[in-house]
């Protein structure tokens, strides 16, 4: 296998794994921003929470991986639901500045709370034995956990898309994103819809944070460190879009991995330059509506 080809395969593989994590975390953000018009900078807090739930359950209580994943989803969904009812709801349709402040405040609190509970160090994530090590695919071997990540991510994405296409809940969500007033006037209980969507989106972020604890290390400043990545995926994908962020996540994931592999010295500079260019070209993102 030639070196160029090996590099190509490596970048594609790791980029795709990263993209899955980015998408799972960001899709909920896209929907809350698009549907409720809410600038939720604290979205990463939910991903971090999912990661902490998973790593604590697995390493401190010996809970099996699969169960810990479900717990991560449920815990973040529930936690976000409480925050939504208590705080977020007050600011729907309000001033962007207030939303920015509220969610920045939540980020700060999460940094302190996570340090208090889990300490300043990052949480080690040990995948189950059957996923650690290398998987031999014949022509070359790949890390087992990341292969699982890609498959699992793909499954979740397909499930999510089908769910939004085929179910009644999905129809309501799409209706509310398209035209909130119309949706209200045809009798959709948007307050409940918001809460459920918010919880689902945050739960997915928690799941993404848990699955991706290996790539985006779980530590107290997680929400702050990765905020720009999540926002970029949403902004490039287009607010309120479900599929846009997927394309954006794949683009960003592969480009980011590629730069880190080929030109690590340049850091994330190109990613931001690329984002800037995309946003100038299409201010509403690749799939945003005008």
């Amino acid at each position: 296998m030639s070196n160029t080809f090996a590099a190509f395969v490596s970048i594609g593989f790791h980029g795709l794994a990263f993209a899955m994590v980015l998408y799972l975390i960001s899709v909920g953000l896209s929907v809350t921003m698009g549907m409720m018009g809410f600038v939720n900078l604290a979205h990463g807090v939910f991903a971090m929470l999912g990661g902490y739930v998973l790593t604590s359950l697995m390493s401190r209580m010996g809970v099996p991986f699969g169960l810990a994943l479900i717990a991560a989803f449920l815990a973040t969904a529930l936690g976000s639901l409480i925050l939504e009812r208590l705080l977020y709801r007050r600011l729907y349709g309000g001033d962007e500045l207030d939303q920015v402040l509220l969610t920045m405040g939540l980020i700060f609190m999460s940094v302190a709370a996570a340090t208090y509970v889990w300490g300043p160090l990052q949480q080690p994530m040990h995948p189950p034995r059957w996923l650690s090590g290398q998987l031999d695919f014949g022509f070359r071997s790949f890390p087992g956990y990341r292969s699982f990540l890609i498959l699992c991510g793909a499954g979740l994405v397909i499930g999510l898309w089908l769910g939004l296409e085929r179910t009644r809940f999905g129809m309501k969500v799409r209706a509310a994103v398209d035209n909130l007033r119309m949706a209200q006037s045809v009798g959709i209980n948007t307050s409940r819809l918001f809460a459920l969507t918010f919880a689902l989106g945050s739960g997915l972020a928690g799941l993404g944070g848990a699955l991706g604890a290996d790539l985006l290390a779980i530590n107290p400043s997680y929400a702050l460190d990765n905020l720009v990545y999540f926002l970029i995926v949403v902004a490039v994908g287009g607010l309120g879009s479900i599929r846009g962020p997927f394309i954006a996540a794949v683009l960003i994931g592969i480009a980011d991995t590629g730069f880190k592999y080929l030109l690590p010295e340049l850091g994330a500079f190109f990613i931001y330059a690329l984002t800037m260019a995309l946003l100038l070209w299409r201010p509403r993102g690749l799939f945003g509506r005008a």
């Binding site: 790791h14 790539l215 880190k260 080929l262 690590p264 850091g267």
Partner: peptide, 19 residues
Amino acid sequence: TRIPLSQLDFTPILQRIKD
């Protein structure tokens, strides 16, 4: 290779070294 301190995922660079 010099790795930026902002980068915490060392997989891409170690993959490159492996290759």
